[in-house]
Design a protein around this nucleic acid. Structure first.
Length: 580
RNA sequence: CGGGGAGUGGCGCAGUCUGGUAGCGCAUCUGGUUUGGGACCAGAGGGUCGCAGGUUCAAAUCCUGCCACCCCGACCA
């Protein structure tokens, strides 16, 4: 491929609307252009990377028996109503009507579509198991798209769905996908972690996320320093050191705390660490979209945060519960936030494990400007349940007991779920088992954010000059800076190198523009293909060309006569090398 | 939806406070000199200053309304 024959426009300045390096570099390199927020055109070079990654995905899923299909992007309302998600997904589904006033949405995910596809065909346990996947454009009407392809409205996703006769089979399918995903991200060549995760409103009871580690990641991961335990902070079990209980319960004592609104202010005033104070929060335990008001009090240590995802799961809600407004807090407790506590409350009180056994607590008095000292469980207030309610954090003990947790930022690029029969029951996707009983199919679903993965790879692999593509998905293997594009000797050399590379299935991009060398070098660094070859009068006069490694900037001189073979070998070596 | 920022040639920005000829850098085109890390000189083209009202002799600039964008938060398979 020659620059002069391609469609490629690079930018010197970083675009004003791009914040993180990967987004800036992709726009600067002409890889993507924004059409609307979260909606992008993929240029010819990004498309090449995309196809390469898709190829890796197809190969690895194929090895595990995945069968590729392609489902519609436009879905009728009816299938989404069958599962209740027409409402549940809310505004995230882009809905519209046709000329006959029939309602549709754009496919945000395809559990409904694939279950409908399968239920018409599968009749017997003999028809199972199988695993279907597709690579397709998804549309989700994100509230706030950001960071280019990281959180787009329109994006390419690989989604797969497994169908089995029983749970054991479904879990086997889950394990297969787990290992396929491991292989896929290893081949992509990124530093990634697999973590326990919340299953969100997809449903199901087992779920893990694949994260590419990067500072700009939207998710916080907690990883054990000594073992392979890793979890999304949202669901990471919190282990707290047991409380050493002082033996006697002192008398309850009210004291003035004027103008002390936060735990930190209170801690400072009382000269005790915030961990020794008690934080009182109020949530509405009812389903977020219902009219019902069911206030619940949640107690944690002053240094901890309540975890809404854990509350959601504990209370069996479909979405995280809502924190009460200041006004509502006043109505249910008699005080504003900052002066609330469990004493005298007329609602269930949930207490975090970390407070179990603690005596003589400092809590709000439910009267503005007052707190209690020496509040004790049993004597002064009652607790409905003890549970793990808090956000785990760096420095906590790992749940597997093998060390302490360290915090990383990650970009979620893959997610696997064991679904069970949530969709098959609602949509009547059934089969007859060996004894002639009608059974719902056991399902799993598995996603990879294809476009997101590629940007995440760039986010992880770039420098001040530009992108450093992992060789597995680099748009081209070799970037030739043809410094004298009119020199017959140079052109002849490029031809022979091109032939040699094509013979082994490698790709070559030639910058044949009438530009000065500096311009070509800058663009080569920006575009970020793994190897660059400089061909110019200066080195040709010495009977040499220069091969430059994009990642290390190492230069090797190669004799012209040996150039085609040596460069082919270098390209081959690069492709075989994995960064991590 | 809440908070913040910013809408000015293709890109990046100044000008707005204090109303008075629409500017700079990059890119583009022409000619010339250059040619191994974003060259230089000379010339040229390109903007209804987001949109609509209003104030004024006069509006990019002041007022009102709307639209769209970016960031933080809420939300998120």
């Amino acid at each position: 491929m020659r620059w002069s024959e391609s469609y490629l426009f690079t930018l010197k300045d970083k675009p004003a609307d791009a914040e993180i390096p990967s987004h800036q570099l992709m726009v600067r390199g002409g890889y993507i252009r924004k059409l609307a927020p979260g909606i992008f055109t993929y240029g010819p070079f990004f498309l090449r990377a995309l196809k390469k990654f898709e190829h890796i995905i197809r190969e690895e899923l194929g090895k595990k028996g995945g069968v590729e299909i392609l489902m519609p992007m436009v879905h009728p309302k009816e299938i989404w109503e069958e599962t209740g998600r027409w409402k549940e997904m809310g505004a995230g589904l882009l809905k519209f009507k046709n000329r006959n006033d029939q309602e549709f949405c754009l496919g945000a995910t395809h559990e409904e579509a694939v279950t409908d596809y399968v239920r018409g065909d599968v009749k017997s346990y003999r028809d199972l198991p199988f695993n279907l996947f597709q690579i397709q454009t998804k549309f989700r009407d994100e509230i706030r798209p950001r960071f280019g392809l990281m959180r787009g409205r329109e994006f390419v996703m690989k989604d797969a769905y497994s169908f089995d006769v029983d749970k054991a089979g479904a879990l086997k399918a889950y394990e297969k996908m787990y290992s396929a995903y491991e292989a896929i991200f290893q081949r992509l060549g990124v530093d990634f972690r697999i973590v326990k995760a919340d299953s969100g409103n997809i449903g199901g009871d087992q779920s893990q996320e694949f994260h590419i580690l990067a500072q700009s990641g939207e998710d916080e991961l907690l990883v054990c320093e000594n073992s392979d335990f890793a979890a999304n902070v949202e669901v990471c079990p919190a282990v707290s050191e047991p409380v050493e209980s002082s033996d006697s319960e002192n008398p309850l004592e009210k004291f003035e705390t004027p103008h002390l609104k936060t735990i930190d202010q209170l801690a400072k005033a009382l000269k005790v660490p915030s961990q020794e104070l008690v934080k009182t929060l109020f949530f509405n335990k009812a389903e977020p979209d219902s009219e019902v008001f069911e206030p619940v009090c949640v107690l944690t240590r002053g240094s901890d945060e309540a975890n809404p995802i854990k509350l959601k799961n504990l209370w069996g809600l479909s979405n995280p519960p809502r924190l009460l407004s200041d006004k509502e807090v006043f109505e249910v407790s008699g005080a504003h936030p900052g002066s609330c506590g469990p004493v005298g409350l007329k609602m269930p009180v949930w207490m975090d494990h970390s407070l179990k056994g603690r005596k003589n607590m400092v809590v709000g008095a439910n009267e503005d400007g007052y707190h209690y000292r020496n509040a004790n469980l049993g004597r002064d207030f009652k607790v409905a349940e003890f549970a793990d309610l808090r956000m785990a954090k760096e420095g906590d003990l790992s749940p597997d007991g093998k060390g302490t947790l360290k915090s990383f930022r990650g970009i979620e690029v893959g997610h696997i779920f064991y679904l069970g029969t949530k969709y098959s029951e609602k949509m009547k996707a059934q089969f007859l088992d060996e004894s002639g009983n009608l059974q719902p199919i056991q399902m799993g679903c598995y996603g990879i954010g294809v476009t997101r993965s590629l940007q995440a790879a760039i986010e992880q692999s770039h420098d001040a000059d530009g992108i450093i593509w992992p060789p597995s998905v680099a748009p081209f293997d070799l970037h030739v800076c043809l410094l004298d594009p009119d020199s017959p000797e140079s052109l002849q050399l490029v031809d022979s190198i091109e032939k040699s590379l094509h013979a082994q299935g490698a790709s070559i991009f030639v910058d044949d523009r009438q530009e000065r060398p500096g311009v070509k070098f800058k663009d080569a660094d920006l575009l970020g293909f793994p190897l660059r070859l400089n061909i110019g009068a200066r080195s040709l006069a010495n009977g040499e060309v220069e091969l430059v490694d994009r990642a290390t900037k190492e230069i090797s001189k190669i004799k012209i006569a040996e150039a085609p073979q040596e460069i082919s070998a270098a390209v081959q070596k690069k492709k075989g090398t994995h960064v991590h």
